[in-house]
């Protein structure tokens, strides 16, 4: 006796009808960020509607026959293109990195919560990124640049393992150059620090050396009126939060993007649970006061 489903695959699927089915996107551009990190630009190949993504959200990216992983959007192009920045560490991220222009991959999303940029209007903003954590923050930075007048002081602080591990470094000067339209507002402060500088690169490196939080004391002048957005390794974020609290930034104005194993991205598979939260649905962006009690417990 068989209670199994008849598996007569015939019908073409409309992905918008089913959240487990990806849409097919085609690679239209690739940018090598570092030795192991690449930004993939892609356009939808199905002629469907553009994805409406907010800064900080993520997509599930599928490589045919290999598998699927969650990847934050690192930018959305004005032409509807999606940009994902991927570090080649596992089978899927390696396969994504190996895709050539013209080849296709699957996209489900966008999923999750976003950086609450509209609610930060009028505030000064600290952006704190560790390593690849800058990727989900880049759309937020683009928003800060576009709506510069809506915010007070803006400081962007990035940490990387070494000068060669910085991502989006070619954009830093543009971020810094962006002049506020309103009189009196300051330029955006962009500062980078690295953990170490290899001997052969020492002559060329004039930046800071040390953990990214060491940049905070000389950041903005009005921390009480500031908000912070953080993304990086969890241990880095834990330290960063403590330093930001010491500066005087309120718990509820500190936002962080958490990472957990995600399989379905729709709050159904259970993998990403963190206490009452499904990180895929209730996160990845949380305000610190919502997760404070969860970040000090090991293996939660």
């Amino acid at each position: 006796m068989s209670l199994g489903l008849p598996i007569n695959v015939q019908k073409q699927v409309d992905p918008r009808q089913n959240s487990f089915v990806p849409r097919v996107f085609t690679v239209t551009g690739k940018t090598r960020e570092t030795a192991d990190t690449v930004t993939i630009k892609a356009h939808s190949g199905d002629g469907g509607v553009q994805l409406e993504a907010r800064p900080g959200q993520f997509n599930m990216l599928y490589v045919h026959g290999i598998g699927e992983i969650p990847v934050s959007l690192s930018a959305v192009g004005s032409d509807g293109s999606l940009l994902h920045t991927v570090r080649r560490v596992g089978p899927v991220s390696k396969a994504l990195g190996n895709l050539r222009i013209g080849e296709s991959f699957g996209v489900r999303g966008p999923y999750g919560t976003h950086w609450p940029l509209e609610s930060l209007h009028g505030r000064s903003v600290i952006v704190l990124a560790g390593g690849l954590g800058l990727a989900p923050l880049r759309p937020a930075i683009h928003h800060l640049l576009k709506f510069r007048d809506a915010f007070g002081e803006v400081g962007i602080y990035c940490g990387a393992r070494s000068p060669a591990d910085r991502i989006f470094a070619s954009e830093f000067s543009r971020w810094q150059r962006e002049k506020p339209h309103a009189t009196g507002a300051k330029s955006i402060q962009v500062r980078v620090t690295v953990d170490r500088v290899p001997d052969q690169a020492k002559a060329a490196w004039h930046g800071e050396i040390g953990v990214v939080t060491s940049l905070l004391p000389r950041s903005i002048s009005d921390p009480v009126n500031a908000a912070a957005m953080i993304c990086g390794p969890e241990v880095m974020m834990r330290h960063a939060v403590q330093d930001l609290l010491q500066l005087g930034i309120a718990k509820e104005h500190i936002y962080l993007s958490l990472e957990r194993n995600m399989k379905c991205a729709v709050g159904l598979c259970g993998h990403c649970q963190l206490s009452r939260y499904f990180v895929c649905r209730d996160g990845p962006v949380f305000s610190f006061d919502a997760v404070e009690h969860l970040l000090t417990v090991k293996e939660l």
Binding site: Q10, V24, T26, S104, G106
Partner: peptide, 14 residues
Amino acid sequence: ARRQGATFTIEQPE
């Protein structure tokens, strides 16, 4: 999903 050149198409069981 079936590969078709550089892309692929997705089908679902009835």
